[in-house]
Design a protein around this nucleic acid. Structure first.
Lengths: 225, 225
DNA sequence: AAGATCACTTCAGTTCTTCTTCAGGTTCAC
DNA sequence: GTGAACCTGAAGAAGAACTGAAGTGATCTT
């Protein structure tokens, strides 16, 4: 699966790149409009992530050009919140979906998955670890037969741990994955959500799936606790 | 696996170089900004360790130049604690991760591993010596079938010994590897941790994996004691 | 429009573990 | 024998993580 990221904010580009590569995607980055257009035309990508505000040529133009040239690679467009540009406009020029900045990596990933699912055979999204299972599409979570209601954030944190079950996940990795790239608050927020999760997925079952490794991070017991 | 270190502090460069080479990395060192940029451009590295404060051209510039040239080799940036420069700035210029000085070698290595994990199937990180085995990804340690719980420091010291099993490792090498390069406390701390380790990995099994070589250092018996 | 609800976040006090120091004992090489 | 090197247990310091409660803003209900 190859992804092209056209984004001039290097920080966003780097984080998205890192995240997607961890997932096994092949990732290329273009830092401006013309480069992006050129790479999209020459290379063969499964999906393109396209910022609107770009040096040289804006995202709408890049998108329109591609579509005119008969290139129908799925495009996920990134729009700023205080939209000088409109979301509808993104879809009008031929984008398949859009995402408002700032966004977190898990949201981006979810959207990409949704896009790819439409086009090709869906990759297995459901995730099981021990008797825990989550499904990012339906956004539901089960422990054994029991359904557990999770909020959006809780779900994201749990997904982050489950996708790397058994491994140490550092707090800053969780922060990078679940929160906005722009998040600048108290990192203690991760501990708070771990607490919420434990209360929901561990305590009622008298298990201990989420382990704390001091000075290192958290680890989800691959056997479910 | 090839690593480029761009760092003008020769002590830090030497320790990092030595450490990574024993891990089987190919290591090149550049002592200033322009050299670093040139080497990064010409050579093909799997990861670059880049100090910010550099003679000739600072790390941000080097990083930005590389990214603009389309070079997306993962970059781990080294920042000073009392940041005249900001960490966020590191990521803004396209670095993939950063590390605050002073740091210990084991932390650096862990970060590098995290960066490299995304590019390909991770190199064999698991480490076995006799019936001892540790896995830095999961942060687990086994003697035979029995899992042993180690704290972060204990784990680091043991890893340090295991990676050079059979060889004599001096106390100051352990100090350099596990503690901050700036650590200025009682070197007796190494003895204390050796004691802790022995209590956990030797005594319960009535073995003696960690040998003392007087006036020289410690050695891990390659057969596990 | 006011009120209620919910999720998210911040805060501050508490608890707990780990790290480090210290002081005295032991062992070994010379 | 003697001194340096090493070992060891205890204790306190430092630091991480836990936790409940309260504030904030958005959304939904009435």
């Amino acid at each position: 699966m190859r992804v092209l990221i056209v984004e001039d904010d290097k920080k966003v580009a780097a984080i998205v790149r890192r995240g997607l590569e961890t997932e096994g995607f092949g990732v290329d980055v273009a830092l401006n409009g013309p480069d992006g257009l050129w790479m999209a035309t020459e290379g063969s990508y499964d999906v393109i992530v396209l910022d609107i505000m770009l040096p040289g040529m804006n995202g709408f133009k890049v998108c329109a050009n591609l579509r005119e040239a008969g290139n129908w690679t799925p495009i996920l467009m990134l729009t700023a919140k205080d939209g000088e540009y409109d979301h509808a406009e993104a879809l009008d020029t031929g984008a398949d979906d859009y995402l408002t900045k700032p966004f977190s990596f898990v949201v981006l990933r979810a959207r990409l998955r949704a896009l790819l699912r439409r086009t090709g055979p869906s990759p297995s999204v459901e995730c099981r670890v021990g008797d825990l299972s989550i499904n990012p599409i339906t956004h539901r979570c089960f422990r054994g037969e029991t359904e557990i209601t999770l909020t959006a954030r809780e779900f994201s944190v749990l997904e982050c741990l489950m996708r790397r079950a058994g491994e140490i996940v550092t707090k800053s990795e969780i922060l990078d994955n679940v929160w906005d790239f722009a998040f600048d608050g108290d990192p203690n927020i991760v501990e708070v959500y771990i607490r919420h999760l434990r209360r929901k997925i561990d305590e009622p079952f008298e298990r201990r799936a989420i382990e704390t490794i001091r000075r290192a991070g958290y680890r989800l017991d691959p056997n479910g606790g």
